[in-house]
Design a protein around this nucleic acid. Structure first.
Length: 691
RNA sequence: GCGCGCUUAGCUCAGUUGGUUAGAGCACUGCUUUUACACAGCAGGGGUCGUAGGUUCGAAUCCUACAGCGCGCACCA
């Protein structure tokens, strides 16, 4: 059987993937066809993982490629070790992100969701999901992922909807769901509340306005919120202001009842001075205006001092009737300019300084966030957080590396109640009569490992495969998703939903910047696969993986993977040539020569490293052994030998390396395996792991 | 601001509990087209291990300070 001189991935990959799919070995049911009770293969031991479901909005990016390559390495090794493996795939409806996509689509047609109405809009959402929802999953096939496609889930499937409803009701029975008017982070563009975790603080150049407030001067970046002031606050121990605490102070303000066309006039108002420890004596003049409705810190102060809220900014980011006719209808930024001008005219501004500060932006659309009071649904976190902290503390869930586990515990210890309602249309409707809002998308994601298996029904899958063994994601969603999965699992099923969490590195550009599609700094995995092959990409990614260090990824590493694939291909060619036509590989271990024992210890070490999720080390060991020990030394030393012993050793080395390399480079290894002179062989994917 | 991480060859990174001449891939130089592979082989150049101190018989490895880069949390109005 002649092998071509160079390995060409394109001719191999799709063909091999098809073979695997047809074999049924991606499903535990398929594995039972080759099960052996005697050797305990695919019978009693199980290994289960649920994929991090990609959003229906997306396309494959290099982060997905890394994440799922690593997970596939674990799954493939476990499968070969004889575990009945299940890797459960699916997609996430991605509430706000997906809704934004379709709204953009509508905008191109000159439409808005309000113009077409809720029903029609949801139809469009489902159309989107039909058309684009599975793109990533299809792309996963190019990567060679061995997920069980017969079980593909979606977070808005009817069964999953039921899980979400059930979960909500169970929380309700506990009395942990409540509705409250609170100041929350609001995105005027998306017209919904968003989670604090979805607010990005971006440094911006702003201005600090020093405004006269009666006998005081105080500094603010947002003069327009003056119209919503309900108090002034100082630090309790500030000697400068101690005598004013508790007093009502008369202040010159601007008359907001005058139309904008008229020159500004002074209006007297009065504000009480309160003392609060949150005030920094050192900043500005040490005295602050309190605008409870539009500032999170001020809101906290208002709760402590029982101050009223005056809402002056509406849900579209415009000044409302409480701002007075002079400002009503202006956008926040316009109102800021207008009032600054008015105050200046009235001589109420002492000075204006340039000022660099951080401004909150929406994670999804980058609009400036407006804190404002809004009626939202909340989930009490106290008891739930305890459940997760306990699971992380007693080793029921182990986080790799430990650094991230500690980090999650810290977050859970300080976590506030979860605002679970969103003013969107795409998502799970809050299961309360007359309620129009939907649930935060992470509410359903939090149920993923068990809801994807059919919970709350007592399904066979749930009994057999839950809890799972492994999950992985990048660090960006360890609170949003992983921490919440832990307490959801504990609360609803009594078990933590997985044993091991692996937080993988973030892939950066070669220059250490975040990869961004809009900046054109991303690497498209599909283009890489097209150019170098999936195995090269997979191996390159795994080779660079370390526990903590983020990964600056360039083509060099992929080129290395490609060269390595070609090297391995030629090792196989050589061995096959050397073995000759009538040799049959039996897989028996030749008696211990030096190279054989080196092989064995490499096998053991690679296994241990994958089991400990030390992917980079495992890849290095394989590379070094195959290239430098097997090829450079052993093959070179035995070139002039033709005896049976050498042939046995060559055959054994090739077969063992093939197996060890398979999780990293599944396509080329399966292809080579298909060419080996072995009697009654099946597919490499279910062959016995060497260690 | 608080916390964490990183800083080792031109580039991207390894360096296990401190111990002889600090490693890999890519790039580079020279030689080799020898029937597995030129996507290769052999040989080689290149590093005061961020800076300054300290501990030690001995430090890239431990401690302190500083600097640069990055991440997370919190936002000071």
């Amino acid at each position: 059987m002649e092998l071509p001189k160079a390995y060409s991935p394109k001719e191999v990959e799709d063909k091999i993937y098809k073979l695997w799919e047809e074999s049924g070995f991606f499903s535990p049911e398929g594995l039972s066809s080759v099960a052996s009770a005697k050797e305990d293969r695919f019978t009693s031991r199980k290994f289960v993982a649920a994929i991090a479901p990609p959003n229906i909005t997306g396309e494959l990016h290099i982060g997905h490629a890394l994440e799922n390559t690593l997970e596939d390495i674990v799954i493939r090794m476990r499968r070969m070790q004889g575990y009945k493996t299940l890797w459960l795939p699916g997609t996430d409806h991605a509430g706000i992100a997906a809704q934004n996509k379709v709204e953009k689509q509508l905008a191109k047609e000159g439409l808005t969701r309000h113009k077409i109405g809720r029903e029609k809009f949801l139809e469009r959402m489902w159309e989107w999901r039909e058309k684009y929802g599975n793109i990533i999953l299809d792309q996963f096939k190019k990567l060679g992922l061995s997920v069980d496609w017969t079980r593909t889930q979606f977070t808005m499937n009817p069964g999953y909807q039921k899980a979400v409803e059930t979960a909500f009701k169970k929380y309700q029975e506990k009395g942990w769901i409540y509705r409250g008017e609170r100041v929350i982070s609001w995105c005027p563009r998306c017209a919904t509340s968003i989670s604090d975790l979805e607010v990005n603080h971006v440094p911006e150049k702003g201005r600090l306005y020093f405004i006269k407030y009666g006998p005081f001067v105080l500094a603010t970046t947002r003069p327009e919120t003056k119209l919503g002031d309900t108090a002034l606050a100082v630090h309790p121990s500030d000697e400068r202001y101690k005598k004013y605490i508790g007093q009502e102070i008369e202040i010159d303000s601007v008359d907001n009842t005058l139309p904008a066309e008229q020159p500004p006039q002074i209006k007297k108002i009065s504000l009480k001075v309160v003392d609060d420890i949150s005030v920094d004596k050192e900043f500005g003049t040490g005295i602050i205006k309190v605008t409870p409705a539009h500032d999170l810190t001020d809101y906290e102060i208002s709760l402590r001092h029982n101050l009223p809220l005056v809402k002056i900014i509406d849900e579209r980011g415009k000044m409302n009737e409480n701002a007075g006719i002079r400002y009503q209808g202006l956008k926040v930024a316009q109102a800021r300019e207008q009032i600054a001008k008015d105050l200046e005219t009235l001589g109420l501004i002492e000075k204006i300084e340039d000022y660099d500060h951080n401004v909150g932006h929406c994670d999804r659309c980058d609009s400036v966030i407006e804190p404002l009071p809004s009626k939202q649904w909340f989930l009490k976190m106290e008891e739930l957080a305890k459940l997760a902290i306990e699971a992380l503390g007693n080793g029921e869930v182990v986080v790799h590396s430990e650094k991230w586990g500690q980090d999650m515990k810290n977050w859970l210890t300080n976590v506030r109640d979860w605002n679970i309602s969103r003013q969107l249309w795409w998502g799970h409707k809050i299961p309360i009569d007359g309620e129009e809002d939907v649930l935060d998308t992470w509410f359903s994601s939090a149920l993923w490992p068990f809801a994807a298996m059919g919970w709350p029904e007592k399904t066979k899958d749930l009994t057999e495969y839950y809890p799972t063994d492994f999950i992985t994601s990048d660090r960006g969603i360890r609170y949003l998703w992983q921490a919440r999965m832990i307490f959801s699992g504990k609360f609803f099923t009594g078990s933590a939903p997985f044993k091991d969490i692996y937080i993988h590195a973030t892939v950066l550009t070669k220059n250490g910047k975040r990869m961004s599609k809009s900046l054109g700094t991303g690497i498209d995995p599909l283009a890489v696969i097209e150019k170098y092959g999936a195995d090269a990409l997979r191996f390159g990614l795994a080779y660079q993986t370390t526990e903590l260090q983020d990964m600056r990824f360039g083509e060099d590493t992929i080129i290395m993977g490609k060269k390595f694939a070609n090297k391995f291909w030629n090792i196989a060619r050589y061995v096959l040539m050397k073995l000759g036509d009538d040799y049959e590989i039996t897989g028996t271990r030749p008696l211990g020569s030096e190279i054989i024992s080196k092989m064995d210890s490499a096998a053991e070490s690679v296994t241990k490293n994958i089991e400990k999720y030390k992917f980079g080390e495992a890849a290095h060991e394989l590379y070094d052994f195959i290239w430098h020990e097997f090829a450079d030394k052993y093959i070179e030393e035995t070139k002039d030998k033709d005896d049976q012993e050498t042939k046995n050793a060559l055959a054994y080395l090739l077969l063992t390396c093939l197996k060890l390399l398979h999780p990293f480079m599944p396509f080329i290894t399966e292809e080579v395996y298909s060419k080996l002179p072995i009697k009654d062989k099946g597919l490499l994917i279910v062959e016995k792991w060497p260690s």
